[in-house]
Write a protein that binds this DNA or RNA. Structure first.
Lengths: 209, 209
DNA sequence: ACCGCCGTTGACCAAATCGGTCAACCCCCA
DNA sequence: TGGGGGTTGACCGATTTGGTCAACGGCGGT
C-alpha cells in the first residue's frame, strides 16, 4: 500500500478506515464495492485506489489494523488496571466493556468487520491471519483470568464460562443494533451492566458482596 | 405468487426456501442475486421467477413463512408442554432451545434471514410486517413467563433478564457458527445447557435444586 | 507571478453481473 | 401419439464492477 496514507490527518484516515470497515462488515468481501466505500467516506473512488492498490489490499490492511487496535486498547486499559492492583473480576470486566463501547464509538464498524472477516467462507484471509485473531482472543481472556481474584466465586462456578456468557451477550446486543448513536451505546452498556450485576450478586460468595 | 409452488413435494419447497433464506441472510436484499439463490438450490433461475414474480415477492413470502413457522413451532411445543403441567422455567426453556436447534437443522438460514430482514436499513419490509415480528417475539416471552413457576427464583432475580441473557447467548453462538452440521448444532446445545445450568444452580432458591 | 508538487477528482473502460423473459425441452400420463 | 406442466438455459438491455488516468486546484517556495 501507499505509505503516504499515513501522512493524512488522523481524522481522514479514520474516516476512510471506518467507512471501509462498515461496508465490509455489511456484506461479503466480493459483494462489497469500492464505490460504496468511497461514497460512504465522501471521497472519490480514485483516491481509494491511490492509497491501496487493490480491494484486497485494503481489506487485509483493515484486518491487521483492527487486530492491532484491539490489542493496543486491551494492553492500555486492562493490563494497566490489573497493574494498579485491580483484581475484581466484574469490576475489571466492566472496565473492559466500557472500553469496548468506546471503541465502538470511535470505530463503529470494527467488530462487525472483524467477525465477518473471520467467519466468512471463501475468506480472503490467510489461515495465518485467522489463527492470529483466534490466538489474540484466547490470550486476552486467559491473561485476564490469570490476573483476577477468582476465589470470590462460589465453588463450582467456571469463571471462563461467565466471561464467555457476558461476551456472547455483548456481541448479541451489538449485532442487533443498527446505528451506534451515543444513547444507543449507553443503553447497551446499561443493559450489559444489569446482567453483570445479576451474575455478580449470585455467583460471588456472600462475604464478597 | 404462483400457487402451484405448493404442489411441489415438500422437500423441493424446502430446498428452495432454505436456499433463498440462506442467501438473503448473508447479505442485503439488493445485494442478494436471484442467480445465487437458484445456484444454491440447484435449480434454474427461470424456475424461481416461474413461482415468484419478483425477487421482492419471494423475499416477502419467505419472511411471512418464517414467522409462521416460528409461531407454529412455539405453539406446538411450548404451549403444549405447559398445558401438560410443565412449569419449570429452565426445563421449559431447554425444550424451547432444543426445538430451536431442530429448526436450525431443518431451516439452517431461517434465523439469520429473519434477523437481517428485521434490522436491515432501507428494508423492503413494510412497517406492519416488522411490527408483527416484534410482537411475536414479545408475546412469546410474555406468555412463556406467565406460565412458568417464577417463585423458584431467589428474591430480586428478574426472570425476563434471564430469558434475554440466554437468548442473546444463543443468538451469539448461532451467529459465529458458519456451517450447521449435526455435531456443531449438538455442541451449541451443550454449551447452552452449561450456561442454563449455571444460572439455574445459582438463581433458584436452594429448596428447588 | 510562476512553478511544481501532491492530494484529489470524476469521466472512462472493458468485463461482469443484474433482474427478468421466453421458446423449447423432457417426461409422465392418457 | 398427443398433450401438458415442471423445468431449463440461452438471452436481453441495463446497471455495476474493479481499476485507470488525465487533469484539476490550491498551496509553498522562489
Amino acid at each position: 500500500m501507499n505509505q503516504k496514507f499515513f501522512n493524512l490527518p488522523q481524522e481522514r484516515q479514520d474516516l476512510i478506515r471506518n467507512s471501509a470497515m462498515t461496508e465490509f462488515g455489511d456484506s461479503t468481501f466480493k459483494k462489497t464495492s469500492a464505490d460504496s466505500i468511497a461514497k460512504r467516506a465522501g471521497v472519490s473512488k480514485g483516491l481509494l485506489f491511490h492509497y491501496f492498490k487493490d480491494k484486497r489490499e485494503l481489506y487485509l490492511y483493515l484486518f491487521q489494523y483492527a487486530i492491532d487496535e484491539c490489542m493496543n486498547i486491551f494492553n492500555k486499559h486492562i493490563l494497566k488496571a490489573s497493574y494498579f492492583g485491580q483484581t475484581d473480576f466484574f469490576q475489571t470486566l466492566e472496565v473492559g466493556h466500557k472500553v469496548k463501547m468506546d471503541m465502538v464509538r470511535r470505530h463503529p464498524g470494527l467488530f462487525r468487520f472483524v467477525m465477518r472477516a473471520y467467519y466468512e467462507r471463501d475468506s480472503v484471509l490467510t489461515p495465518k491471519l485467522r489463527k492470529k485473531l483466534a490466538d489474540v482472543l484466547e490470550e486476552t481472556t486467559t491473561t485476564f483470568l490469570s490476573r483476577m481474584d477468582l476465589h470470590k466465586f462460589k465453588d463450582g462456578v467456571d469463571p471462563r464460562a461467565v466471561v464467555r456468557l457476558l461476551t456472547l451477550a455483548s456481541e448479541g446486543m451489538l449485532a442487533e443494533t443498527g446505528a451506534y448513536t451515543a444513547e444507543e451505546i449507553d443503553r447497551l452498556f446499561q443493559e450489559y451492566r444489569a446482567y453483570a450485576d445479576m451474575l455478580r450478586r449470585h455467583l460471588y460468595k456472600e462475604e464478597y458482596l
